[in-house]
Simulated scan of single mutants.
Amino acid sequence: MPSDNILLSTVLALLVAAAPATSAVAESAEDTIRATLVQWTKDFNAGNADKVCALFSPELRYDFRGYPERDYDDVCTRLKRSLSDKSKRYEYGLDIREIIPAGDIAIVRLTWTLTVALPNGQTVSSVEPGMDIFRKSPDGQWKIIRYLAYEAPQRPISSGE
C-alpha cells in the first residue's frame, strides 16, 4: 500500500497549501473592501459628487428604518443632491466593526456618523449603525448590493459616564 500513502500525503500537502491561500484571499477581500469604504468616505467628505455612486451596484436595494425600501437611483440622487447643496456641509465618519468575506459576497457591520453643518452655524449629527452586503463584480470591484441601517437612538448621558 505504498501508493496509498503517497496519494494520502499528496492530498494532505495540497490541503495544507490551499488553506493559507484561502486565508490570503479573505484578507485581500477585507483589505480591498476596507480601502473602498475609506476612499468613498474621503470622496464624499471632499464633495466629489461624481464618485459617490461608485460604491453601489445598480442592483442596490436598501432599507433605512422608518422609510420605504429604496434603490440605486434613489441613493445616488439623494447623495448628489446633498453634495450639491452649498448651504450645508455634509461629512461622514466611518467605523468598520467587522468584515466577513465569503467567496464573492462579503458582509460588513459598520457605523456611519453623519454630521451636517447648517447655514446658521449649528451642526447636527446622526449615528447610523448598519450592515452592508457587498458582491464582487465581474470587473473585480466590490460593490454594495444591499444595506440595512437605522439611526441609533440618542441615549442620555448618566452621571456615571
Rank of each mutant, 00 (worst) to 15 (best):
M1Y: 07
I6G: 11
I6E: 11
T10F: 11
V11D: 04
L12A: 12
L14I: 15
L15G: 13
V16H: 10
A17K: 05
A17H: 10
P20T: 09
E30A: 08
E30P: 07
T32H: 12
I33H: 04
A35C: 00
L37N: 15
V38N: 12
W40M: 02
T41D: 06
D43N: 11
F44S: 02
A46Y: 04
G47L: 01
G47Y: 01
K51T: 08
K51S: 10
C53S: 11
C53H: 13
L55E: 02
S57H: 10
E59F: 05
F64G: 00
P68F: 01
R70C: 14
D71K: 07
Y72V: 03
D73Q: 13
D73T: 13
D74I: 10
V75A: 14
V75R: 10
C76P: 03
T77L: 12
R78W: 09
R78D: 09
R81D: 11
Y90I: 02
Y90S: 03
E91L: 14
Y92M: 03
I99K: 02
G103E: 04
D104N: 14
I107P: 01
R109T: 11
T111E: 04
W112C: 08
T113Q: 14
T115Y: 00
T115A: 03
T115N: 00
V116Y: 00
L118Q: 13
L118S: 08
P119M: 03
G121Y: 00
S125E: 07
S125D: 05
S125G: 11
S125V: 06
S126A: 12
S126F: 03
V127G: 06
I133R: 03
S137P: 07
P138C: 03
Q141E: 12
K143L: 03
K143P: 05
R146L: 03
R146N: 13
L148Y: 14
Y150S: 12
A152E: 09
R155H: 08
P156E: 08
P156K: 15
G160H: 08
